[in-house]
């Protein structure tokens, strides 16, 4: 079954560096990563408690992110500490867009497609619960999971709205906007290879059109001097570089080069006859770099 499913990714052989390593990694299950919720507990205290219970974890760089190497329970959330909101199960790649956003206390931030809240709650943590985050999602069920995570983590500076990110009015301008757009989810393959569906050419194209509409709406809500972080958890250039190119050519945006403390590669230079001049400033995280899921990120500002 897996081999059959892996054939899906052959279409990216020419654009993913070390493609065979990439494929090999897709065959292995994705490890669990978590983020310590420093709003509620000191990092060292939580790690000591988890290790006492039989967890073996590995810290990543200078971030409050840990990879779980061994655990005494089937699911990493089956602990008292999880229930108390001391940590959030979140892939390292999913922390990257928030690090690119670099939220600061007191800022006004919009998270346009926020549920289930891994990134919104991380933004709130970095802002120390000050300033304001508008966390939006279109789905009632997904908003319920977002609200539950906000409660569990003790986040108090988030306003949750239920709007269509493609055209909704968020009643004001924001210093920073995270558009972690709904996508074909190719980067989550390792989490659930059995349920993976991906998308065909038409599917990527439909998603790409919606993502462009969302980006256009994001620009409408951006303060002068502000930034938009555009991200997806998919590999298709149609949903990534092509959307960024649209922003540069039609929405008067420019792509900013940023430092990201998570290993990554640059964007795709060309796909299906379309050239992407700004590809060097785009960021792609692949599973074979640090044993994570996949992620695309671009930081955009008004020209």
């Amino acid at each position: 079954m897996e081999e059959e499913k892996l054939k899906y990714f052959e279409k990216y052989r020419e654009i993913i560096r070390d493609f065979d390593k990439f494929l090999k990694k897709l065959k292995t299950p994705q490890p669990y990563w978590f983020r310590v919720n420093t709003l509620k507990i000191q990092e060292e205290k939580l790690i000591e408690r988890l290790e006492t219970k039989g967890f073996r974890v590995e810290k990543f760089g200078g971030i409050n992110a840990y990879r779980i190497l061994e655990m005494p329970v089937k699911h990493p959330g089956a602990t008292v500490e999880y229930s108390l909101g001391y940590y959030y199960i979140q892939d390292l790649s999913s922390m990257a867009p928030v690090l690119a956003l670099d939220p600061q206390p007191g800022e006004r931030i919009l998270d346009m497609a926020a549920a289930p809240g891994s990134k919104s709650t991380m933004i709130a943590e970095l802002m120390n619960n000050s300033g304001t985050i508008v966390a939006n999602d279109i789905s009632v069920d997904r908003i319920k999971s977002l609200a539950a995570n906000i409660e569990r983590l003790g986040i108090t500076n988030i306003i949750v709205t239920k709007k269509d990110a493609r055209n909704a009015n968020f009643d004001g301008k924001f210093d920073k906007i995270l558009l972690d757009a709904p996508c074909s989810g190719e980067g989550t393959f390792r989490k659930n290879p059995w349920g993976f569906q991906g998308a065909d050419e038409k599917g990527h194209s439909i998603l790409g059109r919606q993502q462009k509409m969302m980006l256009r709406n994001a620009v409408r809500h951006l303060s002068d001097g502000g930034i938009i972080v555009y991200s997806t958890c998919t590999y298709s250039p149609i949903e990534n570089e092509s959307v960024v190119k649209y922003g540069v050519e039609n929405l008067n945006l420019k792509v900013l080069k940023i430092d990201l403390p998570i290993p990554h590669l640059e964007g795709v230079k060309e796909w299906d006859g379309e050239k992407y001049e700004m590809y060097e400033k785009c960021i792609r995280i692949y599973p074979h770099l640090v044993d994570t899921g996949g992620m695309f990120i671009a930081v955009l500002a008004k020209q």
């Binding site: 619960n129 304001t132 003790g154 949750v160 709205t161 239920k162 009643d171």
Partner: peptide
């Protein structure tokens, strides 16, 4: 609800801070 953010006049709010 308790809210620690800056006031923001916005329509369609589902959740405002924490219960």
């Amino acid at each position: 609800w308790a809210f620690s953010g800056e006031l923001w006049d916005i329509n369609g709010v589902e959740v405002f801070g924490i219960k």
